[in-house]
Write a protein that binds this DNA or RNA. Structure first.
Length: 299
DNA sequence: TGACAGGGGGTGT
DNA sequence: ACACCCCCTGTC
């Protein structure tokens, strides 16, 4: 039996590759932007192979001639087969939604869409999305990924020999703030600790919030310590499928300042502009702008 | 190679 | 406005 040093672990046996029904041919850049462009912090790339984790699922993804293919550890295969389509929101017709964005009258948006054909939004588990974005304040993706990896390793549980799932909020409630700090969370440790205690006292609160309409859900999320407008919008966009959510972070602020002339606009003003200019799918437009801005920076 | 600033995908006061 | 916490990155 040959063993590659890149192998996950000697005892992890993967299923055969299986194709996934995407509606357009994805490019490597689009796949990278979707998986690792700030929606999720649980994907790792090695060469052309992506490994990702959510709840008790572990999957590997690759592009094979424009087709998206997946495989999973045999022990998790059934679980992944069920949860992957939802996680990747494969039932959603992203090209059709993208076509309904106002790109015909917005040259910059048209350019962003052309650069990332097939870009889509994930539908991650709500609670995990909240945890990830509670870590995100004034941190870059690499650092956020490091934090959640430590949270999983220190307070989660193994789902394969060398992969750990994230702790549930109930599990986090049992962890001291000091131990959370050991996960390199800095001042975010207190937010996460307090949020865990808040949720522990309110069974069903998160599930109810996820089901609410956008505005009500956002107001509820903002009751949590460490959750402001931006974090709430990210959680609802990436973890609840609320496509009207329009998170305004520094990248989007820069993008709209530079490409739309909104210099010195405040985040709340930019958010209002985004919702009115881009419409009910503003969150999808945001993802395109964000992807473009990440790639092109200040240029 | 190792130190050292500078700044970072916000929130709360 | 500014503190919060401290790791990453670029630079010397």
């Amino acid at each position: 039996m040959s063993r590659s040093p890149r192998n996950q672990g000697d005892s992890t046996r993967f299923s055969d590759w299986q194709s996934l029904p995407t509606r357009v041919a994805l490019t490597p850049a689009t796949l990278a932007e979707t998986l690792d462009g700030g929606q999720s912090f649980r994907w790792q790339q090695r060469e052309d192979l992506w490994s990702g984790t959510w709840t008790e699922s572990l999957v590997e993804l690759r592009l094979h001639g424009g087709l998206l293919e997946w495989r999973a550890p045999i022990s998790l295969q059934k679980n992944v087969a069920t949860s992957l389509p939802r996680y990747l929101a494969l039932e959603t017709d992203w090209p059709a939604l993208t076509d309904s964005l106002p790109w015909r009258s917005d040259a910059h948006l048209a350019q962003c869409i052309a650069a990332f054909p097939g870009l889509s939004l994930l539908r991650q588990p709500f609670g995990e999305t909240l945890l990830g974005f509670l870590c995100s304040a004034t941190k870059q993706i690499v650092q956020i990924k490091q934090m959640v990896a430590l949270l999983a390793k220190n307070h989660g549980a193994p789902i394969s020999p060398d992969t750990f799932r994230l702790p549930t909020w109930a599990e986090i409630a049992e962890v001291t703030e000091k131990d959370l700090r050991a996960c390199l969370l800095g001042f975010r440790a207190r937010y996460i600790h307090q949020t865990a205690l808040f949720l522990a006292q309110r069974p069903g609160w998160l599930e109810e919030t996820e089901q609410m309409p956008y505005l009500a859900a956002k107001a509820r999320l903002m009751e949590l310590p460490g959750v402001g407008e931006k974090v709430a919008d990210c959680v609802l966009l990436f973890g609840a499928g609320k496509l009207e959510a329009f998170p305004v972070d520094t990248w989007v602020l820069k993008s709209l300042a530079r490409r739309y002339g909104l210099n010195d606009w405040k985040p709340a003003q930019v958010a209002h502009f985004g919702r009115t200019h881009f419409g009910p799918l503003a969150g999808l437009a945001q993802q395109y702008l964000f992807a473009w801005e990440r790639r092109h920076g200040g240029r």
